[in-house]
């Protein structure tokens, strides 16, 4: 699972997909996750990173990350190479 390579993500949480022309905005947790995904981190690694930084438990976070990735897939921002 990879974030599409051409996609531009800024630190401010603005995402631009040059292939579709669509832009998106992210909240801070979303920005962080998408940047970790871009660094090829696994979901487990992302979870550890977020839990160490934010006031959230594993169960809640796992549920939210799965849902978030589903949204990214819907927007065609993720290449699934499984």
């Amino acid at each position: 699972m990879n974030i599409n390579r051409n996609i531009a993500i800024s630190d401010t949480g603005f995402v631009f997909d040059p292939s579709s022309g669509d832009s998106y905005s992210l909240n801070p947790v979303g920005t962080e996750i998408i940047q970790l995904l871009k660094k090829q981190k696994t979901i487990e690694e992302i979870q550890v990173e977020i839990v160490s930084k934010y006031e959230v438990d594993d169960v809640q976070l796992e549920k939210d990350i799965i849902d978030f990735i589903l949204t990214l897939e819907q927007y065609n921002l993720i290449e699934n190479n499984e």
Binding site: V15, D22, L26, P28, V29, E32, L61, L72
Partner: peptide, 9 residues
């Protein structure tokens, strides 16, 4: 913490 959010503009 707030759940991750992505919104299409």
């Amino acid at each position: 913490y707030e759940r991750p959010l992505i919104k299409k503009l």
